[in-house]
């Protein structure tokens, strides 16, 4: 049955591709940060340092996997699994090219929002189950940050949904044949970019895991591969957010000459690089600044964007 085989290929590709990209990102980011900070990144292992991924993986696998005796064992082990599951599941609805998505849900965008809501648990539970001061504080802060910015993330996408008329990601990409949504929905794009950074706990919003402030925050007590999962999970999150921005604002697979998936990967990669540059450029935001910025600036912005979009759609 070619249909089933095709499905299996889709699943395998959408599983391997993000994982490979996230794995490669661990090195790419460090080298790019190095360039921006006038130093070399890792360049010893392999020709240009790319085998560092393998070296890191082997190191993490070989470390002692120690669970603190005072920790709540089942929850402690489950927390990294939750984030990995939710991020990988979100990749199921992203269309690589026309007709190539693991699950072309008609509420695809809502599914992504649902999965990101579940990701909040991972952070909060990781902090709590460690039963230790710093992780608990980090976990609570992270959960509050994630919850708040999740609201704006959802609302910033409503403009796109209104313009496309559907929650289906393939339909949204198709609707951008004339003009990419980043033009009319620029405010929405900016808000989604910022909210996406906050949701994946990237600088400038990485206070929950700040090395200099909270001793690595909510994943302080995690070692070896569980930490590896959090680590790669963060890069997976960046890949996911970039892929979503490509689909929602930059026309997904649309583009002349080259095949669809090439455009998709190209756009996603550029956005990932932008995210990394943002990390190099901006300082960390203080927690109360972060929350007040979110609720006092972003929320009104998204609401106004919603109103204006609705008014324009009604008028035309």
């Amino acid at each position: 049955m070619p249909d089933t085989a095709w499905h299996i290929i889709e699943v395998v590709v959408m599983l391997l591709l993000p994982l490979l990209m996230a794995g490669g990102l661990t090195v790419v980011e460090r080298r790019l940060l190095g360039q921006l900070q006038d130093r070399y990144g890792p360049n010893r292992v392999g020709v240009m340092g790319e085998m560092q991924v393998l070296a890191d993986a082997v190191k993490l696998l070989g470390k002692e996997d120690w669970i603190p005796p005072f920790a709540d064992r089942p929850v402690f082990v489950a927390a990294p699994a939750i984030i990995l599951m939710s991020v990988l599941a979100s990749f199921a609805v992203i269309p690589l090219t026309s007709g190539f998505a693991v699950a072309d849900l008609n509420v695809g965008l809502l599914f992504f929002l649902a999965m990101s809501s579940l990701g909040v648990y991972s952070v909060a539970l990781a902090g709590w189950s460690s039963r230790s001061k710093y992780p608990l504080l980090g976990g609570l802060r992270a959960a509050a940050q994630l919850l708040g910015y999740e609201v704006f993330m959802g609302m910033s996408l409503l403009g796109v949904v209104m313009m496309a008329g559907s929650f289906d990601l393939s339909t949204i990409v198709e609707g951008q044949r004339g003009l990419w949504y980043v033009g009319p929905q620029f405010v929405g794009f900016v808000v989604f970019f910022i909210a996406g950074l906050a949701e994946t706990r990237r600088t400038p919003f990485d206070l929950p895991e700040a090395e200099s402030e909270l001793v690595a925050g909510y994943h302080a007590e995690y070692s070896a591969m569980k930490f590896g999962i959090f680590y790669v999970g963060e890069y997976l999150g960046i890949t996911l957010v970039s892929a979503l921005m490509t689909v929602l604002f930059f026309g997904g697979w649309l583009g002349p000459i080259l095949p669809g998936w090439t455009w998709f990967l190209l756009k996603t990669s550029i956005l990932i690089l932008v995210v990394i540059v943002v990390r190099a450029a901006l300082p960390r935001v203080r927690y109360d600044q972060l929350m007040s910025f979110g609720w006092k600036v972003m929320l009104p912005l998204t609401l106004i964007n919603l109103l204006v979009t609705a008014a324009v759609i009604l008028a035309t």
């Binding site: 809502l110 649902a114 579940l118 539970l125 609570l140 509050a144 919850l147």
Partner: peptide, 22 residues
Amino acid sequence: APFVAALEVIVYAGAIMVLFLF
């Protein structure tokens, strides 16, 4: 009811239960 299914996860499981957790 796909919309309500997504809402259940986003709002109920994703926000109200997190409030419980807090």
